[in-house]
């Protein structure tokens, strides 16, 4: 498949860097960024998670003056960055197991506190490591209000093992374990969970959602998270070209459509209450988002559009827009 090669991005959301005051420019625009996750790793072309991880950690590195330790759950991000004996990490980085990143981070934070050190801790994992197998450890870290920022890079399935369904997989999505077969192809409606809302239910100081489609918004949220102590949660939407069947050069576009259609609302919450939301500037129909991804091909098979099922997904997006007041942002 031939793809358009873009050497730079244009548009109102990205071109502003050179026009902004130096203080308000993105961390990523600076030659002094730490490149916490540096080049040479084995992520797929267009990997949203690789992008998200570098942006998050570079912002966290700037916010902490480089006094940062990273704990990583097993998953794509761990595997593609550390093929022995190489490592793409330019930060102190610790991988233990799939399900325990939050607990290991608690241990690191406890060690730092015990030693009187000001070093901060970020734990990170994919949606499977965070919302499924690691959820008990995550909830424990939240309720103890341990001084950890946990970042979930949500690509909506178990990509490292070959695209199996997770509790973050949206309805209708085809995965290796929710095949596009039978009368109800793809993932089921009514399953899955909303991790940011569950995080908020713990009453922790800070919860936010972010997307690789909005760099400034993401960096601001990391900075806000690092300004406070206690348990914090950042849920970043990161398209996976491999698992979603989207073009490698469409990662940002797909991520932006997820935000603009309302399926992935961007908001911040403090102590269990939503305090800010990022308004949708150009609302898009869910169908525009679905059409770019082969995991939803069955909705458009044989030239027919599965209007009924798409409407059910649209209803979820509409409810998000209403619930989080995403059109006005107030």
């Amino acid at each position: 498949m031939s793809q358009r090669i873009k050497f730079y991005q244009t548009g109102t959301l990205t071109a502003g860097n050179r026009l902004l005051d130096p203080e308000t420019r993105a961390v990523q625009s600076s030659v002094d960024r730490s490149n916490a996750l540096t080049s040479g790793h084995r992520a797929c072309q267009g990997c949203g998670e690789a992008l998200g991880a570098r942006w998050v950690l570079d912002a966290a590195m700037r916010a902490t003056g480089g006094q940062l330790v990273v704990v990583n759950a097993t998953g794509c991000l761990e595997v593609f960055t550390t093929p022995y004996p190489e490592s793409s990490w330019q930060v102190p980085w610790l991988h233990s197991l799939f399900a325990n990143a939050a607990s290991v981070a608690t241990g690191v934070a406890a060690a730092m506190r015990s030693k009187g050190s000001a070093v901060r801790v970020v734990a990170q994992g994919g949606d499977g490591g965070t919302m499924d197998i690691g959820f008990g450890a995550l909830s424990g870290m939240f309720e103890r209000n341990d001084d950890v920022l946990y970042v979930c890079y949500d690509n909506e399935a178990y990509m490292n093992t070959g695209v199996q369904r997770s509790s973050a997989t949206p309805p209708l999505a085809r995965t290796a374990t929710t095949p596009a077969l039978g009368p109800e192809p793809g993932n089921e409606f009514g399953h899955g969970k909303n991790a940011p809302l569950i995080a908020m239910a713990h009453g922790i100081p800070y919860v936010a959602t972010a997307s690789v489609a909005d760099l400034h918004d993401l960096e601001d949220k990391v900075e806000a998270a690092m300004k406070v102590h206690g348990a914090r949660y950042l849920h970043v939407h990161v398209p996976c070209p491999l698992g979603w069947g989207s073009a490698s050069d469409d990662t940002i576009k797909v991520a932006r459509l997820a935000v603009q259609c309302g399926l992935f609302p961007l908001f911040e919450a403090e102590h269990g209450e939503v305090v800010r939301r990022t308004p949708i500037r150009q609302r898009q129909p869910v169908e525009a988002y679905l059409r770019l991804q082969r995991r939803f091909d069955h909705l458009f098979a044989g030239g027919r559009v599965d209007v009924e099922r798409i409407a059910r997904l649209q209803a979820i997006a509409d409810r998000n827009i209403e619930r989080f007041r995403l059109l006005t942002g107030d």
Binding site: L94, S96, S103, V104, G107, V108, A111, K115, A137, G140
Partner: peptide, 24 residues
């Protein structure tokens, strides 16, 4: 000394892993 009441044995040892790796 930090005394941490965790939510499972799996986390008990995981917290110890993080603490030990951080030099405690």
């Amino acid at each position: 000394c930090e005394f941490i009441n965790v939510e499972s044995e799996f986390s008990a040892l995981s917290v110890a892993i993080g603490a030990s790796a951080a030099g405690a």
